[in-house]
Design a protein around this nucleic acid. Structure first.
Lengths: 262, 262
DNA sequence: TAGTGGTCTAGACCACTAT
DNA sequence: TAGTGGTCTAGACCACTAA
């Protein structure tokens, strides 16, 4: 028994095995990448839901007919991408937005001094309409497709700080109403995740400095012309599919947008 | 030979071995973390300089008396932190700011449309002075310590876009002159790295929207009161030691601050 | 061809969590 | 005590680079 490989029992040619990427094909990828893709599919399909325990590494290794080390490397990457959370002694869990941990991953506005506070949210408007060209482009929708627009103001200790418009594809968020939004406690991405089966994975943001316009000034309680941070976010689910456009205006007189470069 | 561990030859108790973290001590960390720390020390001390090849995994494994897999895991993390760059078939290299790759890691201002352009830099002022309280605090200096302040304007295709003040600890940048800065081609962090042996590793930024003041307006060719992005950066070297404070004002009329949330 | 990083396996033991 | 993730080893082969 010469340890591994060299055919016979243990290993196989790279690109084969795992029941995937069969034979004559120009697409070769490492086994662990294939396993990672398979696990991601199960996450996406809802076989394992957010917050739930996924099968143990040993089980997955058996299922996919690979070694535990290979499954491990696949899960390592999923964990690094925050799709999954490992807990020693307990198992590996599907990541969820219903957690203290996740709350600040997508909230970059921090107080200049002191601890972060919980934001209070006030929904100003919810409506359905045909997607404006710009939004349609960013959500990869057709021109006439229906979208939902939510406008809300978030405050810290009674002081308004964020005004944002949130645009969602109508097809994905059928039953979404103003009432549901208002009564819901917790992060909006948590609502999206549990009620609409759409889990936000990552986002890109474009930040600019703009001048307060009259209508905005009222909602944020600042004078016209005051500089505001404009943050345009596009959020993605599995498969890099865009599922949200968020246009925010942030007051930065006592808060700042925090970023780590590494 | 029962494969590994259980004393005798291969393994040892965790926290021991590798010539580190000797015996009776309450600090236990995985072997690969100790190896990582040792490699980091060699990087910091300049045993291997930016751009250079470090010893192969096999060599390091022999030097530290651990398996190649353990060295590998250590280097994996260093690579993820951008301290080191792996190149298959060639070896592992110390990361450097003299590379196309690194240029955009710390430059977040992107054109709203089109390809990123090379910025032209114009040094406005260089002076030495006693650190102002705020700067001293951020650089972890004593009140009276000397600092260097560089003021410069960066333009894209002739249009000024960035005005920044760069504050450096005087002790670390002894020979730094305006002439040297002006004649130097390439990224400023490259200069810091090769001429002063100070390599910037990571940074944190605080972004706000502010209103253009008169003196600033002239340098950036915008009217007073125009909204600008204020970006305050603190940069760190090895050991989380702060080595630079950078206060930038960005025009965002045709550029934006780009960020990825993941 | 030799050397490097990259993948994969198999197996052992450790640390932590539950029962 | 059993099960889970976390660490570590040893060894094989692959993909890529350069002499």
């Amino acid at each position: 028994m010469n340890s591994a490989t060299s055919n016979s029992s243990g290993n196989a040619a790279p690109g084969a095995s795992a029941g995937v990427a069969s034979s004559a094909s120009p697409t070769f990828s490492p086994l662990y990448q294939q396993i990672k893709a398979l696990i991601t599919q199960s996450l996406q399909s809802g076989e394992w839901k957010p917050g739930e325990l996924i099968p143990s590494e040993v089980e997955l290794a058996a299922r996919f007919k690979v070694s535990q080390g290979t499954v491990r490397k696949a899960i390592d990457e999923l964990s690094a991408e925050n799709l999954v959370v490992r807990r020693q002694g307990k198992g590996t869990f599907v990541a969820t937005h219903h957690e203290e941990r996740a709350h600040y991953r997508f909230l970059r506005l921090m107080p200049d001094a002191g601890e972060p506070r919980q934001a209070e949210s006030r929904v100003v408007e919810v409506k359905r309409l045909r997607a404006p060209a710009e939004v349609a482009r960013m959500l990869e929708l057709k021109g006439g497709d229906s979208v939902i627009m939510i406008k809300r103001v978030q405050s810290f200790e009674g002081v308004p700080a964020i005004l944002e418009e949130i645009w969602l594809p109508g097809a994905l968020f059928r039953g979404l109403t103003a009432e549901r939004l208002i009564e819901y406690k917790g992060p909006m991405y948590g609502l999206f995740e549990t009620e609409f089966g759409t889990r936000m994975i990552r986002a890109t943001e474009r930040v600019k400095a703009v001048s307060t316009e009259a209508a905005v000034g009222e909602l944020l309680a600042v004078a016209s012309g005051t500089p505001l941070l404009s943050v345009e976010r596009v959020s993605f689910t599995y498969g890099d599919k865009p599922v949200e456009v968020r246009r925010g205006l942030y007051r930065t007189d006592s808060h700042h947008y925090q970023n780590e470069l590494s």
